[in-house]
Nucleic acid binder design. Sequence first.
DNA 1: CGAATGATTTAGATTTGGCTAAATAATTTT
DNA 2: AAAATTATTTAGCCAAATCTAAATCATTCG
Lengths: 221, 221
Amino acid sequence: MNYSVSEENYIKSIFHLQKKEGTVTTNELAAELKTRPASVTDMMKKLKTKKLLHYQPYKGFRLTADGTRVALGIIRRHRLWEFFLAEKLKFTWDEVHEVAEELEHVSNKKLIDKLDAYLGFPKNDPHGDPIPDANGKIDPGKKIRLPDVPLQTLCTVAGVRNQSAELLELLENKKIKIGTRIEVRKKFEFDQSMEIKTGKQSINTISHQLAENILITYDAG
Amino acid sequence: MNYSVSEENYIKSIFHLQKKEGTVTTNELAAELKTRPASVTDMMKKLKTKKLLHYQPYKGFRLTADGTRVALGIIRRHRLWEFFLAEKLKFTWDEVHEVAEELEHVSNKKLIDKLDAYLGFPKNDPHGDPIPDANGKIDPGKKIRLPDVPLQTLCTVAGVRNQSAELLELLENKKIKIGTRIEVRKKFEFDQSMEIKTGKQSINTISHQLAENILITYDAG
DNA sequence: CGAATGATTTAGATTTGGCTAAATAATTTT
DNA sequence: AAAATTATTTAGCCAAATCTAAATCATTCG
Ligand SMILES: [Mn+2]
Ligand SMILES: [Mn+2]
Ligand SMILES: [Mn+2]
Ligand SMILES: [Mn+2]
């Protein structure tokens, strides 16, 4: 039940990559981790024997339920430290990630749970991303940024991250408001723009900047 | 200028061990780190090529000035985290060491200096040990526990760690009071008792419990 | 002094995580 | 449906940090 820094970095990357496509390829993961495809294959075999990964040679991979639980633990640590760094140590939001990248690997449960309590059980890190609780659950009513929603998942607009007139104008034009039902159909690698379906039928393309400012909740159930 | 977790653990252990005897032996260090003498020899060669160590085969080793600087950086990180864990996260003093043992290896200077500031530049960790400042200096007027003083180093009694009648009675009997000049002559492994010279000539043996409660400062210069 | 003893180093293996180059599988073109 | 291209895995190395067993150095004692 204890994983090396290297294993943890692989697990976390797989978790993030599979949000986009459901399955992760060797080359994608190698690029993300700045390593070589052959090294990825080696680690995949290892994580498979540890039952953290569904993996068939040549077919890509996905985390198992166990793997997902481990990933959420790492993400919890990462985001709690980011919150601490920004809130208490006065790092700016763009500096916290690099430091949290190291702190996340100190995996003492009592430390993290006490840190969580000390920080007042924050719901989101300084980038707006949700912080899993001690059981690895993300509050079901929790607001998530639209780019973090998996494809083909129906959800509901719950808020925006800033109140500028420019943003509100754009939202009005796209007919997106609190309560709008929304589903991401496709994400374009090139500029992170995405095709969404809102309401009953209308299909629309929105920029990454816009998507980042839309918060949603998953639908009940 | 960046060292592995393993290198750091070796460096820190050498620093602590050489306080007692000035020089450290292979077997001592192997016992301390729960590893084998052969592994120690390998690492000593490596630290020597990095100029952190004075080392002649069969002759034991000592940190160089560079090695000492590195050691003080690790000790600074360790003790600041211990202070944080006790003061902010409400760990008890006997729980902090184990967690700090991991956190000390996250060596981001900005992180540590901001943590120091956030904590209000504490002078001592929860065990009473002094915390080196950002330059690796221990406040020259800082109070150190007598067991942490190297052998044959003249220093001055500056305080005690508790005010119980029992302690004061013993101190009076041994003729130790604030301002007494004191020098540790010998430490006995068996019970950590030590032979000290106080004032002009009197040689005396004191227990570890007593020594731990005597705080000293180094003499000027 | 010269053996015996104990401490230390050397030699040779092992594990983990990484790399390059070559082989093989899958997909896309023609 | 081949051929060409791209993706992935295999094979063979390497470096760091460990270990065990054997060799060597240093010290002590008869
Ligand atoms: Mn990381
Ligand atoms: Mn973040
Ligand atoms: Mn450590
Ligand atoms: Mn301490």
